[in-house]
Design a protein around this nucleic acid. Structure first.
Length: 219
DNA sequence: TATTGATCATAT
DNA sequence: ATATGATCAATA
């Protein structure tokens, strides 16, 4: 699929996918649907990228580069509420002390997001899951201030050398969780004495409660 | 059941 | 190795 030339075109394409199953979308792209999603966790996200004409598949840029729009598929329950948190970005542990909210990767990633809900009941086969109505979101001023407060708390702790004290319990909208192939993976981060320590790579995620509130505005 | 911590595949 | 796409699975 070629890249959409405008937000309006992107939205039309996304609306056209609503109600269709993963199998139907995959069939049109001649892509086989994995039988075991445990071995294909990113399958639906990549599939919808291709179906909509995303350009930055594997690069560190918005999915729709020319439009500045990031795509997020979001697994939902029957009532439409998210089942999972939403991964935002890897945390640059070693450099985070130099960053500010205004120029942070979190704020850049979330500036414009197209959420595409996907049914995700565990007992519903991957191919049978239906896509939902898309929601094109930018943070409201209130959203931005909540995200900023979380960023300042979490980035502040990490930058001050307290990465090991940051658990998934912190943050109202944003949280910090491991983001690695294995818990044995290591990355360097500052310690409290100005030296380096080795710790598991981490990412920023949006809490499901936050995305539930955001999506609730659209429906 | 809700949430946190751990993990899987692929591309560059 | 690191970033992309996320969901799995153990714990509280």
């Amino acid at each position: 699929m070629n890249a959409p030339e405008s937000e309006a075109e992107l939205c039309r394409r996304a609306r056209a996918l609503a109600g269709r199953t993963v199998f139907e979308v995959a069939e049109k792209l001649a892509v086989p649907v994995p039988s075991d999603q445990r071995r294909a966790k990113g399958f639906v996200g990549t599939l919808v990228e291709r179906a909509l004409g995303a350009t930055a598949a594997t690069r560190s840029a918005p999915d729709f580069e020319a439009l500045g729009v990031e795509l997020k598929t979001i697994p939902v329950r029957r009532d439409g509420r998210p089942r999972e948190s939403t991964f935002v970005c890897v945390i640059p542990l070693a450099r985070i002390a130099e960053l500010e909210w205004e120029t942070s990767p979190v704020r850049a990633k979330l500036a414009r997001v197209l959420f595409v809900p996907v049914e995700a009941e565990p007992d519903l086969a991957l191919g049978a899951r239906r896509l939902g109505s898309p929601a094109l979101w930018s943070p409201s001023r209130a959203d931005d201030s909540v995200l900023r407060a979380d960023w300042e708390e979490l980035a502040g702790l990490i930058g001050a050398g307290h990465v090991e004290a940051v658990t998934g319990h912190l943050g109202r909208a944003l949280q910090v969780r491991p983001k690695a192939a294995s818990s044995r993976d290591r990355r360097r981060a500052p310690d409290a004495d100005g030296a380096w320590l080795a710790t598991v790579p981490r990412g920023f995620y949006l809490r499901a409660t936050f995305t539930a509130e955001v999506l609730g505005r659209f429906f």
